[in-house]
């Protein structure tokens, strides 16, 4: 049975599939932005406010403890170059990890797949956190707390690496939290713990070699070292391994995609 009406509508299955993918993703991102920021502008404000609160709290604490910054002129500057990049990473992971349950209703539309909702969230989060980051950095630069990074390209590359890592781990987390309840309980605690061993408060070279070697297993720390070596010209990290964070990021992404494929039947039945 041939049906010319249908044939005529198809510009080739591959191009059609790509076009559909682009349409679905952009519609999802719009919808996500609308539901997240639509009702009030507080959502936008919080994207900037949250890291500010963190940095202020820790700056106050470290100042009280009379700690000197490991790098740079002020504790605030040192913490900012660690906490902000960390937040970019962790916000992506956090938003992604709840993408599936939050968008369950969307699966009524067969054209929308679970991976689309995860990717839409990640894309929106990358855009939001990048924007918040730039605004905040610019604002603080105006007050003289921060300055232009010494190696701007390296600085952005380090943040890009953290985004890649966040995307990979985010996809794993998104699928993991749905298929395994133990993972769902344990994962947020692991994330909270990694905050302290990812380097917002220290640089690897100030630790003992033994400890630094252990902490260097954590891929996040390389992202922050990457950013800091680019920001502070005096710092040449002896532990920084750019290939490692990129490799772990890509490997996590591959693992996440594979997990989603394997769990697809399970996800559909949820």
């Amino acid at each position: 049975m041939t049906d010319t009406r249908i044939e005529a509508r198809q510009p080739g299955p591959f191009r059609e599939a790509i076009a559909t993918q682009v349409r679905v993703l952009s519609a999802l991102i719009l919808r996500e932005a609308r539901t997240r920021f639509g009702r009030s502008r507080l959502g936008y404000l919080w994207a900037i406010g949250e890291p500010v609160v963190y940095v202020m709290t820790f700056t106050a604490a470290f100042t009280l403890l009379r700690t000197l910054p490991a790098l740079g002129n002020s504790i605030a500057e040192f913490l900012l170059t660690g906490i902000l990049p960390y937040q970019v990473f962790s916000n992506i992971v956090q938003r992604a990890s709840t993408a599936i349950p939050a968008n369950r209703a969307l699966l009524t539309f067969p054209i929308v797949k679970n991976m689309d909702t995860i990717m839409a969230r990640i894309a929106l989060e990358i855009a939001t956190s990048l924007l918040a980051f730039l605004i905040l950095f610019g604002l603080l630069g105006f007050f003289g707390i921060t300055r232009m990074p010494d190696d701007l390209l390296g600085f952005l590359a380090g943040i890009g690496a953290l985004m890649l890592l966040g995307t990979g781990i985010g996809v794993v987390a998104a699928v993991g939290t749905v298929v395994n309840s133990t993972f769902a309980t344990v994962f947020p605690w692991i994330m909270r713990f990694t905050f302290f061993i990812s380097g917002p408060f220290f640089i690897l070279d100030q630790l003992s070699n033994e400890l630094a070697d252990k902490i260097a297993w954590n891929p996040v720390v390389h992202g922050i070292e990457w950013v800091r070596t680019a920001y502070f010209p005096v710092y040449a990290s002896s532990h920084l391994d750019r290939g490692y964070i990129l490799f772990i990021g890509l490997a996590a992404l591959a693992l996440g995609l594979a997990l989603e494929r394997m769990a697809r039947k399970h996800l559909a039945l949820e």
């Binding site: 919808r31 609308r34 539901t35 639509g38 009702r39 209703a105 969307l106 009524t108 539309f109």
Partner: peptide, 8 residues
Amino acid sequence: SGGFHGSL
């Protein structure tokens, strides 16, 4: 009608 977003 499961596909609708309640807050939109």
